[in-house]
Design a protein around this nucleic acid. Structure first.
Length: 107
DNA sequence: TTGTTGACTCTGA
DNA sequence: CTCAGAGCCAACA
């Protein structure tokens, strides 16, 4: 079955549904839109600065912040999440068992 | 149309 | 815990 809507906006729409203080993973979003984790990461990389999408709430499956090709964005992401009340461990990871958001919670 | 690249994930050692 | 390899899809030149 053909998808009429572009893929990226679908990913961004899901990210916008993540409430403050919680996070989701690339693989989780990829499953929901029917694609692969890499494509979700690529969509985040293509996201323009100053967009309405809370991109900081997307982390990798290990609960860690992924470094991007261009420098210092992950440092900003770290502070944004910490500002939302998310606690980071010594190794720089967060507890997904606590902060991982399930989209089923809205049903 | 082909080839390259990327903010990933999984599995095994 | 860390490290390495393979799989995977979309955008762009």
């Amino acid at each position: 079955m053909t998808v009429t809507e572009p893929l990226y906006p679908r990913i961004y729409a899901l990210v916008c549904r993540i409430p403050p203080g919680l996070v989701s993973t690339y693989g989780r979003l990829a499953r929901l839109v029917g694609t692969t984790p890499r494509t979700v990461g690529f969509a985040m990389a293509a996201l323009p600065a100053g967009s309405d999408v809370p991109w900081q709430r997307v982390v990798n499956s290990q609960g860690q912040i992924s470094a991007r090709r261009d420098g210092d964005g992950h440092l900003l992401q770290y502070e944004l999440l910490r500002n939302e009340g998310i606690h980071f461990r010594e190794n720089g990871s967060i507890d997904l068992a606590v902060y991982l958001f399930s989209f089923d919670d809205f049903c």
